[in-house]
């Protein structure tokens, strides 16, 4: 294998990592604040793809507005879902909160998937990408649609980190995820922070969907695989850890591109591509449920 080929694979891994990180950060944010895993996250991602399709293909807006549109719409969807379905967990209106949270988000995933199937049909759609053509870095050639999508993804991730670190809102969200009771004592509005975190989490997934939609088509079932990857990433990094989500995404992206080319029988290697991460997921959960950066809980 030549150096250029290795660099190309590494670059592909980095681009994929950006999208994994976007989706995973949403899951981490939601888990941090609300202590639940959102099993409908892949469907939020899918809705982001369709929001982009609506804005770009049907309304004819420029592609960058597709991403903005997706972020805004999914933020609202997330906040409504949080208010209607998740909030009752924390106000003591639900008998078995753990199981309820898992089942209600899983049922929501089924609902959103079938809703998209009913409204848009199972046919793939392809909104226009932000940029076309190819970028050449010496001998390294990268398709422009992917590179531009990853670039915007990185901007969004950096933006999120800045908001979390320096704004009052971000500090409130981080405080709640560190210690719910203490945050409340210090006057942080938990209800608001929860709604915000869930909305932001959904918006991140939506942004990822809107960015990838033009590259790999928009279809109702598009969320299943990336969501699974994002669960692997957050578990690897530690559920609820922002840093963990980013590091986990970087690791998974590289593992996937290189594990695939290391196996000689190429068709089988490709078929098993999605399984490597799942094995990692199981191993991490069994050996170290708190992941690389998570906080150990007595009951994982």
């Amino acid at each position: 294998m030549t150096l250029v080929a290795i660099a190309e694979q590494a670059m592909n891994g980095l681009i994929i990592s950006t999208f994994y990180a976007l989706i995973a950060l949403g899951i981490a944010l939601i888990f941090g604040v609300l202590r639940i895993v959102n099993f409908a996250h892949g469907e939020f991602y899918m809705l982001g793809g369709y929001a982009c399709y609506l804005a770009v293909t049907l309304l004819g807006l420029p592609p960058i507005f597709g991403v903005i549109f997706a972020v805004v719409i999914l933020m609202m969807v997330g906040m409504v879902v949080e208010q209607a379905l998740i909030k009752p967990i924390h106000t003591g209106k639900v008998d078995r909160p753990d199981e309820y949270a898992i089942m209600i988000t899983f049922a929501l995933a089924i609902l959103l998937l079938n809703l998209a199937n009913s409204i848009f049909g199972p046919w793939p759609q392809r909104p226009a990408p932000v940029a076309r053509g190819i970028f050449e870095f010496g001998e390294l050639i990268i398709p422009g649609d992917r590179l531009s999508a990853a670039g915007i993804g990185i901007v969004l991730i950096v933006g999120l980190l800045v908001v979390l670190r320096y704004t009052w809102m971000g500090k409130a969200v981080r405080a709640v995820s560190q210690d719910r009771a203490a945050a409340e004592t210090f006057g942080i509005n938990i209800t608001q922070a929860s709604m915000l975190a869930f909305g932001a989490g959904a918006a991140l997934a939506g942004a990822a969907g809107a960015l990838i939609g033009p590259v790999f088509n928009v279809v109702p079932a598009m969320g299943a695989v990336p969501a699974m990857k994002a669960y692997i990433v957050v578990v690897l990094g530690g559920l609820g850890s922002i840093r963990g989500a980013i590091v986990g995404a970087l690791i998974l992206g590289q593992v996937e591109v290189f594990a695939t080319i290391l196996i000689p029988d190429s068709s089988r290697a490709l078929a098993y591509k999605d399984a490597y991460g799942l094995v990692v997921l199981i191993l991490v959960l069994l050996v170290r449920p708190q992941g690389l950066f998570g906080v150990a809980e007595r009951r994982a």
Binding site: V37, E99, A101, I232, D274, A275, I282, L285, L286
Partner: peptide, 23 residues
């Protein structure tokens, strides 16, 4: 294998087992 795990952790592990089988 999952004796230690509860809730969402258990859910994710079972999804992983199921998907590995399907794949």
């Amino acid at each position: 294998l999952t004796l230690r795990l509860h809730g969402a952790y258990l859910g994710l592990t079972t999804i992983a087992f199921a998907e590995i089988l399907r794949i």
